[in-house]
Design a protein around this nucleic acid. Sequence first.
DNA 1: TCGTGTTTGTTATGTCGAGTAACAGTTCTA
DNA 2: TAGAACTGTTACTCGACATAACAAACACGA
Lengths: 261, 261
Amino acid sequence: MADEIPQPGHEPERPPSRRERARAATIEEIKQTALRLMREQGTTDFRFSDIARLMGMTAPALYRYFADRDELLTELIVDAYNDLGEAVAEARDQIPVDDPGGRFAAVAHSYRRWAREEPQRFALILGMPVPGYHAPEEGPTTEAARRAMAQLKSLFYEATQAGLLRRPMLADDDASIARMLAEHHEAKDLPIDGPPVAPETFQAMLHCWASLHGFTCLESYGHLDWMPGELRDAIFESSIRLIAKVAGLPEPGLLTLPGDD
Amino acid sequence: MADEIPQPGHEPERPPSRRERARAATIEEIKQTALRLMREQGTTDFRFSDIARLMGMTAPALYRYFADRDELLTELIVDAYNDLGEAVAEARDQIPVDDPGGRFAAVAHSYRRWAREEPQRFALILGMPVPGYHAPEEGPTTEAARRAMAQLKSLFYEATQAGLLRRPMLADDDASIARMLAEHHEAKDLPIDGPPVAPETFQAMLHCWASLHGFTCLESYGHLDWMPGELRDAIFESSIRLIAKVAGLPEPGLLTLPGDD
DNA sequence: TCGTGTTTGTTATGTCGAGTAACAGTTCTA
DNA sequence: TAGAACTGTTACTCGACATAACAAACACGA
């Protein structure tokens, strides 16, 4: 009785059985249905009973797959991080490595587009989560966030390696920042994977992220709705170029960004 | 029976009666209690029953003051907008008008400080609101948001008038943006009160807001928690100076920002 | 093929919070 | 002081989360 319980985390790698595939499919359907509800209702909330009804089931059946609402939410958050990270990485990798300016533009556009297309999922990961939800401390969500942010960093790292990154424009003496960053690079407690970058590069990267994220947040939550879309697009494009220039990235090659409407 | 219902919105101006004062005090206590609960629980959610319990009342009594949860939330949102706007305006006005760089720094610091001190209220206005809540279209929240943003604009307007604003650094040719902005200034459908500013100034202002907001959002929702506070402060300060420089604002006078920790 | 244990669904039920109804005490005002 | 308005109460409905107990389908070894 006692050792029948499988220890989660290091299951032996065997081919998934028929039942396991069915279970995985159901889990996926539950998540997709939850996302559909969020999209239709425009919130980050959903009801178990609604999910069950749309799936032709009763609500308690869902508890066979998720212990509670929080567990489902956590999975959705992790998926959203991964999805955003993948979307950004894919857009980035469609631009040649020797055009880091273009790569950053692609990252920025895909970040914005993802947020516009999935405002609820965007709110899920970068807004304040659903009331009553408490993310597991240092859990999978933190891990996924770390990975997503690494996408941006690798861009700067590659640019540095290729010698395509000018010194970023910085406000003034940043000796203290450089020192603090160096200390923490040594202590290796920065959450970004991969090799280290120069302090001023790191700072430029963070500035890029914050500016990009700020515009995206404002737009995604409707705070820029008073601007016509055409104007928003133009201002975003201009802002991104400005940010890139300030961060020391070269001018992007003039090309149509893939998938940019 | 029919015409007993008072039409909301144009009540005659008489001195508040004893009862009206008591009612206003109760409404205020309800709001404060809701805020206290939000702060204690770290969410934008609250339970009517909890509010009532903390006030020594029963839950249904609250419906004498607010028709439902949404109505209370709307008031809290409006209050938050006004509060943030006031905090920002106050910080700004403690710096002389002839130091627009310093004024912007003060605005930025107070914006950030407010968000850090009241992350729940910040989420309430600039994040995705509580599930199930639907803001009244073009209602008081929109109005309050408009006013709050006008605080930033007036800073740039004053700087322009005083001839202290250099031409902002822009990415490249922005003729189309200038044209679109000019059209919308003529159409007067921009949400910002007060006299118009030049298109490039407007663009710079928006860039300032987005960058400031981005950093603030990331920090307020804990996405920068991996940085020690000292480093966050330094990077924020540096970023703000950079943004100001890029926007064409002069270097701020070296002074201790009021209330800055 | 059969029987047993696991998985996945069901219905019935408990709990809790939003919101309403009916009623009671208090305060204002004519 | 009587009636109207206001503000609170208790009792109740409703809907959602979550659990318990049970039933059907499935997997698999003898």
